[in-house]
Simulated assay, not measured.
Amino acid sequence: MRVEEIMTSPIVVTQPGVKIANLKDMFIRKNINAVPVLEEDGTISGVISSSDLVAVHNESLFVRDVMSRNVHIGLKNNRVKDAAKMMVKHGVHHLVIMDDGNVVGMLSSMDIIKVFSEE
């Protein structure tokens, strides 16, 4: 099974200059747990997750102040098993999924669990 078969796509993205209060509202409205942070030119500068947001008590901060700059990337044609190994190795719950240099999806540990629980 390939990542593209179970990843979330299309995805929601954010930018570094978005206020944390606005991002928290978006996470709730769209029922999401992580988003890539993209610069205006489309390059990835980070990832921010709901666990990052829970730790923030000053909602006037910006995404750039809180995001993780250590982005773990998978490819849409990777095997799910390999993506899971990468997540375990790096201790992360989300991978930004790329294809031809573009962000095309997100893969979460929950996406993987859902697939294997349905077998």
Results as ranks from 00 to 15, higher is better:
Gly91Trp: 10
Leu95Glu: 03
Val54Ala: 12
Val35Ala: 02
Asn22Gln: 14
His90Phe: 09
Asn31Ile: 01
His72Ala: 14
Arg69Thr: 04
Asn22Asp: 11
Asp52Gln: 04
Phe62Gly: 15
Ser45Cys: 09
Ser49Cys: 06
His90Leu: 03
Asp25Cys: 05
Thr43Trp: 13
Ile44Tyr: 06
Leu95Trp: 01
Met26Thr: 05
Val88Glu: 07
Ser60Tyr: 15
Val71Glu: 00
Ala55Gln: 01
Lys76Glu: 13
Ala83Thr: 11
Gly42Glu: 15
Thr43Tyr: 11
Val80Arg: 15
Arg79Ile: 08
Glu39Gln: 08
Val71Pro: 00
Val56Arg: 03
Val54Trp: 01
Arg64Ile: 12
Val88Leu: 07
Asp99Ser: 11
Val56Pro: 04
Phe27Glu: 07
Ser49Gly: 02
Met67Thr: 03
Val80His: 12
Val47Trp: 00
Lys24Glu: 12
Ser51Ile: 09
Ala83Cys: 11
Val88Tyr: 14
Met98Arg: 09
Ser68Leu: 07
Ile97Cys: 08
Asn77Val: 13
Leu23Ile: 02
Phe62Ser: 15
His57Ser: 08
Lys89Ser: 05
Leu53Trp: 05
Val47Gln: 02
Pro36Tyr: 00
Arg29Gln: 01
Leu23Tyr: 00
Gly42Asp: 10
Asp25Val: 07
Gly74His: 09
Leu38Pro: 01
Ser60Asp: 15
His72Gln: 05
Lys24His: 08
Val66Gln: 07
Asn22Trp: 07
Lys76Pro: 09
Phe62Glu: 14
Ser51His: 00
Glu59His: 07
Val88Ala: 12
Ile32Ala: 04
Val96His: 02
Asp65Cys: 04
Asn33Cys: 12
Arg29Lys: 05
Arg79Cys: 13
His94Trp: 01
His90Glu: 02
Val66Asp: 04
Asn31Cys: 06
Asn58Cys: 09
